Simulated assay, not measured.
Amino acid sequence: MNGEHVEIDWTAARDANRENWDDRVPLHAVSYGRESFDDPEHLSDVVRHDVPVLERFLPSRSLVGLDVCHLQCHIGTDTVSLARAGGRVTGVDFSAPALETARAFAEQHGIQAEWVETDVLDARAAVSGDFDVVYTSIGTICWLSDLDRWARQIHELLRPGGTFFIRDGHPALYAMDEDAPTLTARYRYFGDGTAQVWDDASTYSGGGSVSHTRTYEWPHSLAEILGVLLGAGLRIVHVDEGRTLPWRFSPRMVEVPGGYAWPEDQRDLLPCTYTIIARRD
């Protein structure tokens, strides 16, 4: 069944995914290395990578003092890191246990933050105010069926002149067979509106298992992602592709500084991530 495409109602798929992410919270609270944040200078690997790129395209060239909305924030390690980088942060997620964990984690480290429980596709209606930066990163939009609606939320959350940042797994990577001995395409690169169904008790980080194993994901090509952002009225100011990931997509990946990558002789054959920065004029 894993990777098969199915027709499913969005609400049912979202609820199944939320149950799965609820189950991940206590596992990730252990495996995310949160003890490293006892060092007040510590930032998550993801934010340490992303912020210097983002700041090059901010009018102020700095995140300090800016209002930042972090979409799909999970347990808040990246949100706290964005606050330590100088932002006034609001974290948004659909998992109540994740937000409870994020809130306690932020308070433990003296970080002031707002936390909003909502589906990201309803973020504009649920979140107060507007923002200088809307941020999302790594493992986010594959969970969404309707990217047009997603892009509209981003546009409406940004104030004029505001900046949107996303770094995520590359759709070409997601088309690969993670278990094949060579780089082999197995899954759809182009979406057709149907969901890929997965049944897996593990998570991408640490040990343990989840009780709700069924999840649904949607493939989105790079052209689709760029197109919905442009269609929502945003202006693309930066696009890049990367060779490393913050998690091990395939058992064949090797650990490198900052994450994981394909074996060296294959590293230039396939992108692992993309980064898009866009602005609301």
Rank of each mutant, 00 (worst) to 15 (best):
F131L: 09
P59N: 04
L269G: 06
D240H: 08
L173Q: 08
T244D: 01
V80N: 01
R248I: 07
G169I: 02
S205H: 04
Y174S: 13
S205M: 08
L121M: 09
T90Q: 05
L173T: 05
R252I: 15
D268P: 03
A83C: 08
Q72H: 11
A175Q: 03
F131A: 12
E117N: 15
D146Y: 06
D177A: 11
G129K: 08
R248T: 08
W247K: 06
L270S: 03
S81D: 04
E35N: 12
V51E: 04
I276T: 01
E55C: 08
F164L: 12
D132F: 02
H74M: 13
A180K: 04
I111P: 00
Y260E: 01
D199P: 04
A261S: 15
A232T: 09
W115H: 11
V210T: 14
T11F: 04
G110N: 08
H70V: 12
D192C: 09
I236H: 10
T215A: 07
F37L: 09
D119Y: 03
E114C: 03
I141E: 00
D50Y: 00
Q266R: 11
H42F: 14
D281G: 11
E100I: 03
A195K: 05
A123Y: 12
F165H: 13
Q112I: 00
A151L: 08
V47T: 10
S95N: 05
R88N: 15
G208V: 01
G139H: 06
G231H: 03
P59E: 09
Q196Y: 06
R188A: 15
L58Q: 05
L157G: 06
H155E: 15
L144T: 10
G3I: 09
I111W: 01
Y174F: 15
P251N: 13
D39V: 00
F37Q: 06
V197I: 15
D22Y: 05
E41V: 02
T275C: 10
S128A: 15
N17I: 03
W21Q: 13
L230Q: 13
Q196M: 15
R252H: 15
V120Y: 01
F249N: 00
A102I: 07
T184D: 02
D38T: 06
P40C: 03
S128N: 11
D179W: 11
Q108S: 14
D93K: 05
W262T: 05
W115R: 10
F57D: 07
D177Q: 11
A113E: 06
L82H: 08
I75S: 12
Y189Q: 12
G65Q: 09
V134P: 01
V68Q: 08
L147S: 09
D132K: 01
S250W: 05
D200F: 05
D38K: 10
F249D: 02
G91R: 09
V68K: 07
R103N: 08
I225H: 03
W21L: 12
H70M: 08
V197L: 03
E4C: 07
W143H: 13
A261E: 06
T203G: 10
T215G: 02
G193C: 04
A172Y: 07
E156H: 14
Y174R: 14
L234Y: 07
Q153F: 11
T136F: 11
V197F: 00
Q72K: 02
T182C: 05
A13D: 10
E178M: 09
P160M: 00
E117Y: 07
G259K: 13
A261K: 06
P181Q: 00
H220S: 02
